[in-house]
């Protein structure tokens, strides 16, 4: 009994310790998945002691009249590249970087992108497209042979293709607000798993040699044995892009306007420049901003 009590108290101390660690900014950045999760659906639990209540909120206030719970900020560390030294912290709203995982929304976004990316340019000649005459090859009766029409028939060699592919558009639709949510869901998922590395300002590497970047990646645990990395930069950095293009299974470099949701989910981690991350949040927030269309100041 006593031992059990001691164990319980010890566990309590540990939990408290872990919580305080989680509140520490450094800990929060290094171990985002270890911190307390603040999901968007989470609401603050009212404690029984009145001392914790602010004067203008009383228990008798109806739920709908209470001010919304404060939106927690998410801390991310800015690193340098390629030295990967932590520089500073940067805060993002939870609606940007701590969106709950929705596999269905990610699925819809990935399928939408895949459909949109299809060229749909397959083209075959149907019997009417094949060059040639419509002359009947044999008389209808009296030859002892099977009935035949023209030589462009799909059953003949050199004939058209029956129901062959024609150029078409495979693209499907997805509401903009859902697609925007998918972007932030993907980034949040990566962030919580510690797979989102934010770089303050990406610098080009000194050498365009593939071995150079391979060794850098091995050193900072970005490479092949660590599940590869996607480097996202604002502009093309010649040496970095050339070096990564020469490697195999190490990683990929893309500019911010060339990535999509699927890219964000593919590799072991996303190494992204801060300005690109900010522009993604700016571009893909239609579901949380809710602006009224206006022509003033256009």
């Amino acid at each position: 009994m006593a031992a059990q009590q001691a164990a319980t108290s010890l566990r309590g101390v540990q939990t408290k310790c872990l919580r305080s660690m989680a509140r520490d900014p450094l800990m929060q950045c290094l171990l985002p998945r270890f911190q307390q999760r603040n999901m968007a659906t989470e609401s603050s639990v009212l404690s029984t002691s009145t001392s914790s209540l602010t004067p203008f909120i009383s228990i008798s206030t109806p739920l709908s009249h209470r001010p919304p719970p404060p939106v927690p900020q998410i801390l991310a560390t800015l690193y340098t590249f390629p030295s990967m030294e932590p520089q500073s912290f940067v805060e993002y709203p939870a609606a940007h970087l701590n969106v709950p995982l929705r596999r269905d929304i990610l699925h819809r976004a990935v399928v939408y992108e895949g459909d949109k990316a299809r060229q749909g340019s397959a083209n075959a000649k149907w019997r009417s497209d094949v060059h040639g005459s419509g002359r009947k090859l044999l008389p209808q009766k009296g030859t002892g042979r099977a009935r035949v029409g023209d030589k462009k028939s799909p059953i003949r060699r050199g004939g058209g293709v029956a129901h062959g592919p024609k150029p078409r558009d495979f693209s499907t639709g997805l509401p903009k607000k859902i697609y925007d949510l998918a972007w932030r869901t993907a980034l949040s998922y990566r962030y919580r798993r510690g797979e989102l590395v934010v770089i303050g300002e990406m610098e080009d590497i000194d050498n365009a040699e593939p071995r150079w970047i391979e060794q850098i990646f091995d050193k900072v645990n970005f490479g092949k044995r660590d599940g590869r990395s996607l480097i996202v930069t604002g502009t093309k950095l010649p040496n970095l892009y050339a070096a990564l293009a020469g490697t195999y299974g190490v990683g990929l470099a893309k500019t911010g306007d060339a990535i999509d949701v699927k890219d964000l989910l593919e590799m072991g981690r996303i190494v992204i420049e801060k300005q690109v991350l900010d522009s993604i949040f700016k571009k893909h927030s239609s579901d949380i901003i809710g602006t009224v269309p206006s022509a003033v100041g256009i």
Partner: peptide, 27 residues
Amino acid sequence: WRCRISPPSTEALRSYNQQQWRHESIL
């Protein structure tokens, strides 16, 4: 060990880093 953003400096963790782990995409 799972969150390998910056290599931790202690030797104990270094041994964890030598281990390989396979990245499994959510896709």
